[in-house]
């Protein structure tokens, strides 16, 4: 087994424990598109501070770890058009589908939710198709 896979499994377990804490503690599903989306569109006036606190922890912890490691590569494309198109698609799509990798993927599948499973299969297939197309065009 490669080292990256072991780190993947360990990091994944941390993500699962984070979801466990939010569910058993606050009774909330750890879905980032919902937590962040409802924070910024103002559709959750009663618990915006709780959402903001979660988002702050989510941004702060990896920043501190990356700082102590002397940086972490993201390898994000520098093509502004691609970044804008991808960002809008991810934002629009996850709110339309009411969930992303964390909400549908991690929390939905673990609850044996049909919606979560189908959403995950669909976005993985669409993602794989897009990457295959980028490969075909020679940009990846």
């Amino acid at each position: 087994m490669e080292t990256a896979w072991i780190f993947g499994l360990m990091g994944g377990m941390l993500i699962g424990v984070a979801g466990l804490i939010l569910l058993l503690g606050n009774g909330r599903i750890m879905g980032v598109s919902g937590i962040f989306g409802r924070l910024i569109d103002g559709s959750a006036p009663s618990d915006w501070a709780e959402r903001l606190t979660f988002v702050a922890g989510l941004a702060l912890a990896p920043f501190v770890i990356a700082l102590t490691l002397g940086g972490a590569p993201t390898h994000l494309t520098s093509n502004t058009g691609v970044i804008l198109a991808a960002g809008v698609l991810v934002g629009f799509g996850t709110r339309l589908a009411n969930g992303c990798t964390s909400g549908h993927g991690v929390c939905g599948i673990s609850r044996l939710s049909l919606r979560g499973l189908i959403a995950t299969l669909v976005f993985c297939a669409a993602g794989a198709g897009t990457v295959a197309l980028l490969r075909l065009l020679g940009v990846l």
């Binding site: 809008v88 698609l89 991810v90 799509g93 959403a119 669409a126 198709g129």
Partner: peptide, 10 residues
């Protein structure tokens, strides 16, 4: 929605 998300994700 999941299709749009997947395309952006890819």
């Amino acid at each position: 929605g999941s299709t749009m998300f997947g395309v952006g994700w890819g």
